[in-house]
Design a protein around this nucleic acid. Sequence first.
DNA 1: GTCTATATAGGGATAGAC
DNA 2: GTCTATCCCTATATAGAC
Lengths: 221, 221
Amino acid sequence: MSPFQPFGRLSTMASSAERGTRERIIAVAEESLGDRGYHGTRLHVIAERVGIQKASLFHYFASKADLYHAVLGEGVVESEQAIRRVLESKASPAEKLRALLESYVDMVATHPARTKILLRQSLGDVPNESTAEPERLLGLVAGFVSDGQKAGVFAPLDPLALALGVIGMVAFFFTSTTVLAPGWHDATDTERIKRHVVEMVERCLKVGDRAKADRPCAVRA
Amino acid sequence: MSPFQPFGRLSTMASSAERGTRERIIAVAEESLGDRGYHGTRLHVIAERVGIQKASLFHYFASKADLYHAVLGEGVVESEQAIRRVLESKASPAEKLRALLESYVDMVATHPARTKILLRQSLGDVPNESTAEPERLLGLVAGFVSDGQKAGVFAPLDPLALALGVIGMVAFFFTSTTVLAPGWHDATDTERIKRHVVEMVERCLKVGDRAKADRPCAVRA
DNA sequence: GTCTATATAGGGATAGAC
DNA sequence: GTCTATCCCTATATAGAC
């Protein structure tokens, strides 16, 4: 669940209380980092919400930046797992495409804070000058699209630009409606958004101008 | 150029130095607000870059938040002008669509900082709880798409979702490549991005499956 | 492992001379 | 209109008792 914790974790684990507290801190921090950004996040607020004193945070994390990176870790790992699960399945390219999109929308819907952090990260909102690593996941997806195009299943269109665009589109869409178009969607509208995104991308890649009919069950995340 | 300045501006204008300084402050602030966000922006840095003392900023702006809003103003006004210019032209819907997209991409390309601020705004990165006003401009564009759909020129697709998606896609695209895919585009690649975006949206609205051939010169921003 | 108390620094904002 | 100097608050981080 938390692959980014130090190796010594298992051996030095003290009480179950410690583990729980650490994870609650991360959860609360994720929320705040998404809503307020790194610079806008106040440690004393996190402590307050967790129900501990501010000083106690420093027992679990060496610094604010340390806590930030702990939060980042989880999201990346889980996303990569979801992507690989789809790509390594035995579905058709069109099915995989659909599954990737739905899985991504699901992720955004279930982890809005994580999505906001991604957006903020792309804006350079990171501790100091710790450059956000060039995304490996991006290449994974772009490669899949590229392969499909070579095979003639997808229409030509810059794969990297498409992938980036979709990420931005969905992320902005979710986060912005709260502010720019309040009431447009609520928690139950995820399926609607999913359909919208799938429809858009399929039109862009001209999927199913003949193949759309035979679409069985897609891989789920 | 700066429609948000107080009315008394013309009569109280003292020296040309004052005007120049105020505008330079705004320009520098826009840069910083884009790069570091509201909370990450440091007034002393702005002052330093402008070449004045921090205290002098307060001669022009009552507070940091005040400065922030001054920066916001310009962008909104200019964008609205650009949109109206296109929509009120005598072009075909397909041409207007293309012009809107190109004009938007141009805006993002020429004002990257402004775009970042928009993204940050959608994330709620604003002074305190000054809610970002529900975008009027959004309705303008969505209405245009909707009209085109009723007229049968554009394929059915939620107009508001499309508009939001495009905004997010382009914005994220520009700002993120710097971080996530460095070297993917440079300043001269704007045309390439423009073509990409236009192509995507046209496929989504199924423009030009027959009309794409007769496309004269589009309205420029 | 959690607390209280405090160190240290930095940032927004003001006072008042020039 | 710009400066120097400073106030005041808040935020991160540390010290050390329990």
